[in-house]
Design a protein around this nucleic acid. Structure first.
Lengths: 333, 333
DNA sequence: CTGAAAGCGCTTACAG
DNA sequence: CTGAAAGCGCTTACAG
């Protein structure tokens, strides 16, 4: 009876079996909703579970079945609407297939250390969805080989990847701006650490390229952190000098403070001041911001569906790149 | 040889043991950095692990040890700086004790369903930190009894709780406002679903109470969703009529757009327009917003430390309430 | 320092 | 429909 390893002995399937006077197999069957259980036995077992306050041990279950029904989602951060939309879409699909998601945002360097440190549950789930983090460089050493992975917003040699053609998105914005007879500015984000994505640069590049092809050019590019406070400053600086101009922001998030400053300063947004964002976040819809729509939810769904197929073995071909095209949504700004 | 249950047979500790010509116990020992292993044996095992590409199965390990070294953190959402600060503080402490965090934001109703559905790994970690979600009502049925839990921003009958005296925070803001010879407005958040916290209301209540005691009153309370776009609207509406007024926002987040609108409209913030927020988010520091400081990081650390103590059995008394006092930080607004 | 063996709590053919 | 038993992949006294 040297059972005192743990101070509090949990109630196990065996206790339930004894109490209900059945075998553990039967308890397991009612736990898993097997149809091959007599109604009365089932009731007895259910009763025992309730009385004893039994909760199955997921580790044992997982060890036994070999699958965790869990997907790890790794993102570079977790602020803003983008991730909420993405995660909701992913969760929706996963839920349908009986999976749950484990969210792991790498919002600081330590989180990455913590991830590396242990061959943790986080990396031992049935699959990974990795957003905007370089899998090949950053994660390949710590991910178990053969683990199904799908990347979003990031290319990969080894895994399926879902991407938006950000360069193309920049181009269509540039095409749109080329006709404006005013100064053209860009407000974009400068990345602050290695793990961050390059989407902003790609968007800017496409924008620039397109303008140049049409004989136009960007008058100035403003780099800001992904904060509104800094963007307010920049907006004031711009509008102080230019009462008439067109501004392309590489994400809607940065368009908002700019529009607000313009409006509050009495400038006519949509006429004197033109603003076009990127992403089509909910905020862009609410504020009627002209933008380049990125199908975030679609990316999430596609990633999840693809991952599930890989896990179930339905998809056996070599890694594929899914490139989704953004589209220009002209609204009131 | 009916081993073909899984298409891809993982390499296990047994394979490593055979390859290195040792027992599995020895492999386990080097895995766990036991000092009682001969240098040469250790090398052989390490070599085998590398060659075979072995990754230990965390489920087996956990089943065996009975502990997961994992803490689940449940929050009502994940947007904004608040959670980043809180999570960083929690992670810091957990990391020190060899734990990792699993983040589970209940950002929509489905997430809650998903959590309930399965006696999931998420609820079978070594402990839970629950922020601003009613544990007693919402989670008690699905949490295993005896699971250590610490609540943040939410009272509980059964568990330790870390709270900020939001009512008191409202009071000190009210005391500060009472001397202003101008109209007083409040911009606050109306909660949209059951799981949300009541902190905003408590802050408002304290504010109101304090003003009344000093013979003043709130001229109008504006309820907004936690979005800046709506707050911009409200700010414009206010400043259109009142060029001189004092505004208390129940979170800094809502103070930002108000200040921006005021500034852009040419009003003197800090003189004609007074704004005081709540929380002391980074944004409040950057913009020099007068605010009621909530010690977010301290709450996170305290929660994590308390939980660890509960888990290790060092804390055996009955649940305790830790109430942290907020303080007024007068800055330039 | 090391191996053989029991045990962690489940699931799942297998045989009734 | 049901029970006994093997097996999932680890850890950890126990006995050398």
């Amino acid at each position: 009876m040297a059972k005192t390893k743990r101070s509090f002995q949990r109630v196990t399937i065996k206790d339930v079996a004894e109490y209900a006077k059945v075998g553990v197999g039967t308890v397991s069957r009612v736990l898993n909703n097997s149809p091959h259980v007599d109604q009365h036995t089932r009731q007895r077992v259910l009763e025992a579970i309730k009385v004893l306050g039994y909760f199955p041990n997921p580790h044992a279950r997982r060890l036994s079945t070999g699958s965790s029904q869990l997907i790890t989602v790794i993102t570079p951060e977790m602020k803003g609407d983008f991730y909420q939309i993405l995660m909701s879409a992913i969760d929706e699909v996963l839920f349908k297939y009986g999976y749950s998601s484990l969210l792991y945002p790498l919002y600081n360097e330590k989180k990455y250390e913590a991830l590396k440190r242990s061959s943790d549950i986080l990396l031992s789930t049935d699959g990974l969805i990795v957003d905007a983090v370089n899998v090949d460089k950053v994660l390949s050493n710590i991910i178990k080989p053969q683990t199904p992975v799908v990347c979003i917003e990031q290319e990969s040699d080894d895994y399926d990847s879902i991407m938006v053609d950000n360069y193309y998105g920049g181009i269509i914005a540039g095409d749109y701006f080329a006709d404006f007879d005013m100064d053209i500015f860009v407000v974009t984000h400068r990345k602050s650490h290695e793990l961050e994505s390059t989407v902003f640069d790609e968007r800017l590049e496409g924008f620039q390229e397109s303008l140049e092809k049409k004989g136009r050019s960007i008058d100035k590019v403003y780099y800001v952190p992904l904060d509104w406070e800094s963007t307010f400053e920049v907006a004031r600086r711009i509008f102080y000098r230019f009462k008439r101009c067109a501004i392309f922001t590489t994400t809607d998030y940065l368009a908002v403070p700019i529009i607000e400053v313009a409006r509050t300063m009495g400038l006519k947004v949509g006429e004197d001041v033109r603003v076009c964002g990127f992403d089509d976040l909910p905020i862009a819809q609410v504020l009627e911001i002209t933008t380049v729509r990125q199908p975030i939810a679609e990316m999430g769904r596609l990633a999840a569906e693809t991952l599930i197929k890989r896990i179930s073995g339905k998809l056996k071909e070599k890694p594929k790149k899914y490139i989704l095209k953004p589209e220009l949504v002209i609204r009131s700004t």
